[in-house]
Computed example of a mutant assay.
Amino acid sequence: MTANRDKPRSRRERPAKPALTRDCIVTAAVGIMRAEGLRKVTMRRLAQELDTGPASLYVYVSNTAELHAAILDEVLGTIEPPAAGGDWRERLEELLTAYTVVLFANPSLARSALAARPSGQHYLNLIEALLALLDEGGAAPAQAAWGVDLLLQFATATAAEQATRDQSADAPDEWDDLVHALANTSGRTHPHIAALAPQLTSGTPQERLSWGLRALVNGILHTPGPEGNKP
């Protein structure tokens, strides 16, 4: 009597793969980024994860840049909006700090965010919340419109800079070299540096982020918008 052998299953008997959607593609991309880093999030790697061909993905995502922007938008969905009430400046700083913290937690995404241009719902929600807070604080519409871009640029650059330093093995030595160079600068050739050397490197990243945001908000409120930007 011959032993039973598994017969090849026809394609019709195999379970059907879940239909591709933009949402499932972005979810899979976020998973790859968190496990392997943003650099590994390519169309080829994503197609492998989803058991499909790269060409199938282009129906939903035009290119890698758009995919990275979609990942950023998805991650922004984890930001909790500040509670209503209280000082509008504090809520604005809380929201932008939360945005920065999200990028801190995803170093490769922080650097990509400097060039990425997300346009998804979570990014639009963030802009809407910032505009509402600036409006509450009395910012003119034209100044608020340009001010939001400035605030996000500063927060994004801060996160990208810190993320890069955190991943660099040489960062502590480079920082020590900078502190030493400033402290030993000649007051004859560089009098302002010599006078302010301790202040130039003082403060924690959070303190500097907070001060920078407040300085920008003050500037947004008091700097008239250009003529061409008036509503």
Rank of each mutant, 00 (worst) to 15 (best):
P8W: 12
A35T: 05
L109P: 05
E93Y: 01
L103K: 10
Q153I: 04
L46F: 06
V59A: 14
I79C: 00
A142P: 10
D23L: 13
A47N: 03
T100C: 15
E207V: 13
C24N: 15
L213A: 00
P18D: 12
Q153G: 11
L133A: 11
D176C: 02
F104C: 07
T164Y: 10
R5C: 12
S108A: 13
R34V: 08
A83I: 12
D87H: 05
A113L: 06
P205S: 07
S210A: 15
D23R: 08
T64H: 06
A35K: 10
I193T: 08
K17D: 03
K40G: 02
K7D: 15
R39Y: 07
A144I: 00
S186Q: 10
E93K: 02
I32T: 01
Q206C: 08
L38M: 12
K7L: 15
T158F: 10
L130A: 03
G228V: 13
A65I: 10
T201S: 11
R44A: 13
T223F: 05
E90V: 14
P141A: 09
A194L: 06
V61G: 01
I79S: 00
L103A: 10
Q206M: 11
A181M: 01
T164K: 14
K17F: 02
V102K: 00
E207M: 15
E174A: 15
A159M: 11
G85F: 04
T158V: 07
W146A: 09
E136F: 02
A183R: 12
E93S: 02
L96W: 07
G86E: 03
K7W: 12
A110H: 08
E93D: 05
E207Y: 08
V41T: 04
L150T: 11
L67H: 01
P224D: 09
L209S: 03
T21Q: 02
L57R: 12
I32L: 13
A140N: 11
R214F: 06
L221S: 02
A194R: 15
R12T: 05
P226N: 08
E136N: 12
P226S: 13
V102C: 00
Q199D: 05
N106R: 13
A98P: 04
A157P: 03
L178S: 06
I127C: 07
L216V: 08
E49Q: 13
A157S: 13
P118C: 05
A155F: 03
A129M: 06
Q121W: 08
V179N: 10
A171R: 04
N184M: 09
E90Y: 07
R188K: 09
